[in-house]
Design a binder for these strands. Structure first.
Length: 359
RNA sequence: GUGGGUAUAGCUCAGUUGGUUAGAGCGUCAGGUUGUGGCCCUGAAGGCCGUGGGUUCGAGUCCCAUUACUCACCCCA
């Protein structure tokens, strides 16, 4: 985490994620006393003092949703559906949903024991980092990237085999609801998530092609958290998605389309008089709702036409001394090159002509 | 925190075993006759070669340091 002292020597820490803050807000503002379930969302910036790499910045933005006061697997299913629909709406394809259950304080300690027992027997073959993980965070060995560790982990005891009856039923309830709404998933016993406060359901949407940081959205149930930070017993489940990483996934997929929209009208003005008139006409048409531009750098007509083409203007109006005295000018459709006469004193009709033909 | 890679024009990049005024493509700007874009042609502008040391007659090129960027490890909330 980013921790530093200010001028008074007071220690500050920048938030690394959102869930704990939301839980704190629920406790501090007594939201647990209201109607349940409680559904919240947030969009925040967060900071982590890790070395940046693809899909990971030291400052990043996170979107998240939390649901409090519902223990039923129906809540887990609803939240996963929300995340699923959210990704779909953004056009992010190529994601797979991985789910797992890591049990509760009743059954997890037993599992952890068995896991440490298993890995300790093969300690010699584990990579260096995993040997130390055996002490600090044995669950993490399960998603080590080293091929040897991965091979060893394949036969490791699985969380789902150690679930108590309540947890087992809960997990089954979630799976049948996901099937009911046709959301594809795979049970991935290696999804563990990092924090101790997680209970039962954990899940990740994983995307391919965006680098090593491939989890595009992740979350889980944290039934003990609110109580742990001083609130009442209140169950909770949520997910969060890094907005920068979502953008990355949108770019590598085909979801991201750059807009090449130009203004509705460019007024090519020849000479000082015309330039003044053009500015006035621009303002008038702008008030009517037309996106309108004119020359600001004193270019020749030809150069102005080139410019109008480059900025992808839908129409160009050619304005010189002759047009000003006659009161009418040529309006050119840049798509097909067709030109029509328009009445300069009637901004309304210019507006209509541009709008009608600009379909 | 650890390791690798990169740094040259606005952008993407060339630049030989160290050798004279550092290049290309794209972009920008201006022209290609008198008031009309896209294609094409011509020309111009634009570089402390990331920064600071060192080696050398001579450094974009070699060495050291430093900074930034980047990828991976780590971590993953």
């Amino acid at each position: 985490m980013y921790t530093f002292a200010d001028r008074d020597g007071t220690s500050y820490t920048l938030r690394p994620e959102g869930t704990a803050s939301v839980a704190r807000a629920v406790v501090e503002n007594g939201l647990f006393g209201g109607t349940m379930p409680l559904k919240l969302f947030y969009i925040i910036n967060c900071f982590r003092h890790e070395r940046p790499q693809a899909g990971r910045y030291r400052e990043f933005y996170q979107f998240g949703a939390e649901l409090f006061g519902a223990e039923s697997p129906a809540a887990d299913a609803e939240l996963i559906m929300l995340a699923h629909d959210f990704l779909k709406a953004l056009g992010i394809g190529n994601t797979t949903l991985h789910i797992n259950s890591i049990g509760c304080p009743k059954c997890r300690p037993h599992y952890k024991e068995e896991l440490v027992k298993y890995f300790s027997l093969k300690k010699e073959r584990l990579c260096n980092t995993c040997q130390s993980r055996l002490e600090t965070n044995p669950l993490r060995i399960l998603d080590c990237k080293s091929p040897i560790c991965r091979e060893i982990a394949e036969n490791a005891p699985k969380t789902v085999d150690f679930l108590c009856d309540d947890c087992k039923n809960h997990f089954e309830g979630l799976k049948s609801r996901l099937k009911e709404v046709n959301i594809g998933f795979q049970v991935d016993v290696n999804i563990v998530r990092g924090l101790d406060y997680y209970t039962r359901t954990v899940f990740e949407f994983i995307s391919t092609g965006i680098g090593a940081q491939s989890t595009v959205c992740g979350g889980g149930r944290y039934d003990g958290l609110v109580h742990q930070i001083g609130g009442p017993e209140l169950s909770g489940i949520g997910f969060a998605a890094g907005i920068n990483r979502l953008a990355l996934a949108m770019e590598t997929g085909s979801a991201y389309v750059e807009s090449d929209e130009g203004p509705d009208l460019y007024i090519a003005a020849i000479g000082e008089n015309a330039s003044i008139k053009a500015a006035g006409l621009c303002a008038k048409l702008g008030e009517l709702g037309l996106v309108c531009e004119t020359d600001l750098v004193g270019r020749s007509l030809k150069a102005q036409m080139k410019y109008a083409n480059k900025i992808n203007s839908a129409f160009t109006l050619i304005l010189g001394d002759g047009e000003i005295s006659s009161g009418s000018a040529q309006l050119r459709n840049m798509k097909d090159g067709q030109q029509t006469d328009v009445d300069l004193s009637n901004a309304e009709s210019i507006f209509k002509t541009v709008k009608r033909e600009d379909v």
